[in-house]
Amino acid sequence: MTKVAGTKADEAAIRVEGLHKSFGDLEVLKGIDFTVSPGEVVCVIGPSGSGKSTLLRCVNLLEEPTAGTVALSGTELTDPDVDIDRVRRRIGMVFQSFNLFPHLSALDNLTIAQRRVLGRTKDEAKRIGRANLLRVGVSEKESAYPAQLSGGQQQRVAIARALSMDPELMLFDEPTSALDPELVGDVLAVMRRLADEGMTMMVVTHEMSFAREVADRVVFMDGGVIVEEGSPSRVIGDPQHQRTRTFLSRVLDPAAAEVTEDGEPPA
């Protein structure tokens, strides 16, 4: 019998079923079922320690799930026969702390995986890298090293690095949490444009306005489970669960801890 390991027809870009993850005795994910459709932008929100980053990291197997399956367009990542390196190149990942390679210039950060993983020629990798630096608005910094860039520029280079691999979907793990407030806007603008271009995106974020305006669906997690999910206007604007309401009131207006009718923080 010949079969391609772990592959079956599946329309979902990401399908997570019965996902559990424990670190020692600590169970961080307690059974997650979850799909992302192609072209969909899903924002995952929730208090710190709720397991949202762990969920995201399980999607490209940076964390090995304790139980359950993760499938990407029908390819089951959790199948031990699947070459994870081949699957990961289809998934772009953006980290909270950027994780640019400090010994390489911005452009070399973009070309190294293209050349070493995809086998592109130097010229081709540079051409694609430059196009992506232009796309995120830092093309004038191509020969700068990460230490010479602002946090916002570093994160945009990191996004361009992921995009240079022509990923099918992008994972963002709190991409603006490490940034000074005045630099957040540039990064969110790049992400918004990416969403408008139809990229499939899963974003763990605390930026409620971004979630409300850009997400097709918002997922609220707490205590290792998905508490509720739905359209942004429903989950953020009209949350059904008390835990969601408590969280949102804290995030949207930490000082007043009070939310108005439509979920807008009081002006």
């Binding site: 081949r86 190149r89 070493r116 993983v117 691999m165």
Partner: peptide
């Protein structure tokens, strides 16, 4: 830092690469 390996691996690089 561990994040360097994570970034490299999530770009599809093998452990050795």
């Amino acid at each position: 830092p561990k994040g360097q390996v994570e970034a490299a691996r999530s770009l599809g690089m093998s452990q050795g690469r």
